[in-house]
């Protein structure tokens, strides 16, 4: 799923991460916290918190994250699949004081697994731990559920800026691992990656890989 970047030697990866969660769980604040946190708030793109990008360097590997926010409202869910196709990771946010938002997360997990299989790295995030007194979703229940579906569970507070950096760092590492495993599975097909281009890659049998394969090289536009 990763692509060889332009630079010689070190690898660079482009990952797409979708952000899912009901209206008031605070996913927008969460991602804003992450992207604006250090140094300056120039990270805010012209699309504000809907679409954000972040460049990372993890163990010498360059990572470009594209974070796609999705609408929580039910009425926009008809086209959900076009949002999360080709995603490498998904962050599913619920509000620990809102049982209902946790149920919604479960629905999304089912859908994502159905559409994308096990390729996608799932993170289930209980947000607003600053409001722990009003907690309505038990920690054990949430963590147990996450484990049962092959997802990782995290606790965050966008307000206090807690757990967010860890969440994204961890996710990136997992996505890199998945990507590397994927490369190995393809059997060092480095030659084909260099010359093959879009037309060749749009074969129906692996649609979820097509985009990311061309990703890194085309960020110029």
């Amino acid at each position: 799923m990763a692509s060889g970047g332009a630079g010689g030697g070190s690898k660079s990866y482009s990952f797409k991460v979708v952000l899912l969660g009901e209206g008031c769980v605070g996913k927008t604040s969460l991602v804003l916290r992450y992207c604006e946190n250090k140094f300056n708030d120039k990270h805010i793109t012209t699309l504000q918190a809907s679409f954000l990008t972040k460049k990372l360097n993890i163990g010498g590997k360059r990572v470009n994250l594209a974070i796609w926010d999705t609408a929580g409202q039910e009425r926009f869910h008809a086209l959900g699949p076009i949002y999360y196709r080709d995603s490498n990771g998904a962050i599913l946010v619920y509000d620990i004081t809102d049982e209902d938002s946790f149920q919604k997360v479960k629905n999304w997990v089912k859908e994502l697994r159905k559409m994308l299989g096990n390729e996608i790295c799932l993170c289930i995030v209980g947000n607003k731990i600053d409001l722990d007194k009003e907690r309505h979703v038990a920690i054990q229940e949430a963590e147990g559920y996450a484990e049962s579906v092959g997802a990782k569970h995290y606790h965050t507070s966008a307000k206090l800026n807690k757990g967010i950096e860890e969440l994204f760092l961890d996710l990136c590492k997992r996505m890199i691992e998945t990507a590397q495993a994927d490369e190995r599975a393809k059997g060092n097909g480095s030659n084909q990656a260099g010359t093959a281009r879009r037309g060749v890659q749009i074969v129906d049998d692996e649609p979820q890989n097509a985009a990311a394969a061309g990703g890194g090289c085309c960020s110029s536009g």
Binding site: S50, A210, A211, G214
Partner: peptide, 20 residues
């Protein structure tokens, strides 16, 4: 749309437009 644009801002905008 180019593959490379799909996960970028262009892809996001087009997807949102489609959804709307």
């Amino acid at each position: 749309i180019h593959e490379g644009y799909l996960i970028g801002e262009e892809g996001y905008c087009l997807t949102s437009m489609q959804s709307a």
